[in-house]
Design a protein around this nucleic acid. Structure first.
Length: 793
RNA sequence: GGGCGAAUGGCGGAAUUGGUAGACGCGCCAGACUCAAAAUCUAGUUCUCGCAAGAGAGUGUGGGUUCGAUUCCCACUUCGCCCACCA
């Protein structure tokens, strides 16, 4: 007898798909399109992990499902290849990030092919390839032209020993992650994207998205809109503008507080307070966010100056405290200790007056103002392995865009990837590359300028890749208009990360390019599936250091094969919940696929009439022939025609269930209904139609095995349809309750359900029911849809 | 501190709109096959009582609405995630 040999089957079909370019997508106005993608991965040296497999398989199941349903499906793939790990690896080993990245991409590609994904390999993209980042730079220039990419001084972490800027995550408890020395904040010129220009629209449009509520809420909170007013407070020399959401509480404002970074502090200090205030500000600015979080004890100093409360006309002191943030509102508040817990705590600590609010102003004060928690997006990175910012500086230090026809600004080759002691990335070491002759519009002359050595945040590269997928090889534009019009926007996106950052940035760029007339839609992603993590069998996060990592390639090579791995990860639980890996359940899914295989290929003799196989009945095992074993369903002995009717009903039922479940992303229950169907076929026997249907329904999950089954049966993979008329049962199980408690289940002909009097008669005459009613029924509640009657006594 | 979500057998989970709680899988148990084991097939498996028919209890805890609540409402407990001195 043949045995299910997944590795052989999978190799065969992967070769066939490769040779036939099976998943090549082309625009075709005859067919409805479906464009699906997962969040493209950073190809780490460790290769695929089981979390990737879950994420990619969700999209693959949907892609194959819609293709089988007759949609024109685009299912591309790409790699998010810029990033710190490749650069650190280069610093350590001297191997260039480009070479290391190429190796990792190759490894990823091989592994993806072993999983049988229906990827259009003609559309593979890679953010660190010059053909791609040329257009990332073009995007930057479009934003720059409209003033949405701009430079601003901002405080950055700085390691005085390594002489380099550090990202937030490279600062551990106020110390440099590499050398351990204490870091400081340094004011540096940085590039920003003005995402706040779209804050309102980004917020308003969230509601219209077919995205998980969790993500929508997170985005709303992140944008953090609050409406209030700006109010001016006069001092002897200056005017201080505060932001408040409660201008009505102004009669209780007994002091002002400025953020330590506030520019007016230097003008407000007196000779007596100057030293103390300056020291406080210096310390506060240096504090890491972590320290500010850990130590919520209020601190602050008095500036020595006073302001006039415009409502009470009273003189109130001006303080500096780090609980006021420069980045929000105006960096200055009016403190109302009677109305605000933080202000009260501060007032109590420093013995400042607390005045109950007895009055509200008759006319609204100040200027109505809306503020957002969201800040502009800082995009400068002092790193080598990123997309160079296409800017050069003239001798005055003013920026000039690199003309579009000179793109891409290629990352120069360097020997040493360590940042130098100027706070610039290793790009600064490419001295030839650094110089560029450009027209200076100010002077009208060609001038040798110095290139920007900052690179772009990797999120910039991933902010437009979904549009590149439509025309990945277009050499004349970032995206081809015709291709965009056909494929976009993305119908379904799937990932388990970046709830705010990436998913907000793509929306921002989409709105910007829509305003530029470059995109015909204002939201890039129609439906979002946000998948949960897969944890180790003990429920803990998988990590190399804990040694509890499951390698998906090991699962395949252990003999289970890709079909088992894919199907298991879809069966593991609801796709949006975290799940723990269970090796035994993997075996259970393998058993299920093995049973599918046996139905078609098992060494099974044909039995009566049209029945092709019934392994349980025909396996022999000394129980006589299959024909001698009566098939039963629901405890009833069935004659062949009844058996055929039941089988037909089971088939139409499973088609409906699997179709509905895939459409609502309930992959786990889709698979359990396939398991039920297979169990049914083992009991009742199967026809060729049953097996073809099984193969078609199974294909999105286990495409290799299903292809093998369908080939054997001589069938195509067109998605089957169900007929409502076969779903109707002729014998119905009527549920009878007494006072809401189940007392009987009666098997009645379906027509009976239409006759309520008949239902009541049947229900109330059941002997077990009568034990509880004593023939004293006060009220009957009949729910036809639920096939249920409740007798109230 | 704020926001969101979750809690169901020994385990993962199902119950789509207020209508039979526990589908499906794992595990366990018994049987068939085998010299034996594995694999495979078949039957059983929420708990308590009962040979059975059946009865009682039961979806984190306590209340409520309802003929009927895993589902809706209120309070609480625990866990998870996100944000966090945002004026």
């Amino acid at each position: 007898m043949n045995r299910y040999n997944p590795l052989a089957i999978e190799k065969k079909w992967q070769q066939i798909w490769e040779d036939s370019d099976a998943f090549k997508a082309e625009e075709n106005s005859e067919k409805p399109k479906k464009f699906l993608a997962e969040m493209f991965p950073y190809p780490s040296g460790a290769g695929l992990h089981v979390g990737h497999v879950r994420n990619f398989t969700i999209i693959d199941v949907l892609a194959r499902f819609y293709a089988q349903k007759g949609f024109n499906v685009l299912r591309p793939f790409g790699y998010d290849t810029f990033g710190l790990p490749a650069e650190n690896y280069a610093i350590k080993t001297g191997v260039s990030p480009k070479i290391a990245t190429d190796t990792n991409v190759k490894n990823f590609r091989n592994q993806l092919k072993k999983l049988g994904y229906a990827i259009d390999w003609n559309r593979e993209i890679n953010t660190s390839s010059p053909e791609y980042y040329k257009w990332t730079q073009w995007c930057f220039l479009q934003l720059y032209k409209k003033g949405l990419a701009y430079q601003k001084e901002s405080y950055q972490w700085w390691c005085p020993v390594d002489q380099t800027v550090l990202a937030n995550e490279q600062v551990e408890n106020g110390h440099c992650w590499r050398c351990g020395s204490e870091v400081e904040k340094k004011k540096m010129k940085q590039w920003f994207f003005k995402i706040t220009a779209y804050a309102d629209e980004l917020l308003e449009d969230v509601d219209s998205l077919d995205w998980p509520e969790k993500i929508k809420t997170m985005q709303k909170n992140w944008i953090g809109k609050s409406t209030g007013a700006e109010i001016d407070f006069e001092t002897t020399s200056e005017k201080i503008t505060v932001f408040t959401t409660r201008p009505d509480t102004i009669y209780g404002a007994t002091f002002l507080v400025l953020a330590p970074e506030h520019p007016l502090i230097k003008d407000l200090v007196t000779d007596k307070t100057r030293e103390k205030v300056e020291e406080y500000c210096k310390d506060a600015i240096k504090k890491s966010e972590i320290e500010r979080q850990e130590n919520k004890e209020k601190t602050g100093v008095f500036t020595g100056s006073f302001a006039i409360n415009p409502a009470t006309k009273e003189k109130i002191p001006i303080w500096v405290a780090d609980y006021v943030l420069m980045g929000y509102g105006t960096g200055a508040i009016m403190a109302v200790p009677a109305g605000d817990d933080r202000d009260r705590e501060f007032a109590e600590k420093f013995d400042l007056p607390i005045v109950e609010i007895t009055k509200t102003p008759e006319t609204p004060f100040g200027t109505p103002k809306t503020t957002y928690r969201m800040r502009d997006w800082l995009i400068s990175r002092q790193r080598y392995w990123g997309c160079p910012i296409p800017i050069a500086y003239d001798s005055d230090g003013d920026p000039h865009p690199i003309p579009e026809d000179q793109l891409p600004v290629i990352i120069p080759e360097v020997e040493d990837f360590k940042p130098d002691n100027t706070g610039r990335s290793a790009l600064a070491k490419a001295t030839d590359w650094l110089k560029v002759d450009l027209l200076n519009e100010k002077t009208g002359k060609i001038e040798t300028m110095t290139r920007e050595t900052d690179t772009l945040d990797g999120y910039a590269c991933s902010s437009w890749y979904l549009w590149r997928y439509a025309s990945p090889h277009c050499a004349t534009a970032a995206w081809d208009e015709k291709a965009i019009n056909y494929w976009e926007p993305l119908d379904i996106y799937c990932g388990g990360d970046h709830a705010v950052a990436h998913l907000l940035y793509v929306r921002f760029w989409c709105k910007f390019f829509a305003d530029e007339g470059k995109l015909p839609f204002r939201e890039p992603i129609t439906k979002l599936l946000y998948n949960g993590y897969i944890n180790a069998p003990d429920g803990k996060k998988m990590s190399k250091s804990k040694g509890n990592v499951i390698d998906p390639l090991d699962v395949i090579n252990d003999g289970y094969g890709a079909d088992t791995l894919r199907t298991y990860e879809m069966f593991i639980g609801p796709y949006d919940q975290d799940a723990a890996w269970n090796p035994r359940s993997v075996g259970g899914v393998y058993r299920f696929l093995n049973r599918c295989w046996t139905l078609v290929f098992g060494d099974v003799a044909g039995v009566s009439g049209e029945i092709v196989s019934s392994p349980s009945a025909s396996a022999g095992y000394g129980r006589g022939s299959a024909g001698a074993t009566p098939a039963t369903a629901g405890g009833r002995d069935l004659r062949p025609t009844e058996r055929a009717i039941d089988r037909k009903r089971a088939m139409h039922r499973v088609i409906k269930k699997v179709t509905d479940d895939i459409e609502r992303a309930a992959f786990n229950t889709a698979i359990s209904s396939l398991m039920e169907y297979v169990n049914e076929l083992y009991k009742a026997g199967s026809t060729e139609e049953d097996l073809i249907t099984l193969g078609k329904l199974l294909k999105p999950f286990a495409p290799h095995l299903a292809s093998e089954m369908l080939e054997q049966l001589g069938a195509d993979d067109a998605w089957p349809t169900y007929d409502e008329k076969y779903l109707v049962e002729d014998l119905i199980e009527l549920v009878v309750q007494v006072n809401g408690k189940l007392r009987a289940k009666l098997s009645v002909p379906a027509e009976v359900l239409d006759d309520e009097n008949e239902v009541i008669k049947l229900a109330s005459s059941d002997s077990n029911v009568q034990k509880f009613t004593n023939n004293h029924i006060k009220k009957t509640i009949y729910i036809k849809k639920a096939k249920l009657i409740n007798l109230v006594v």
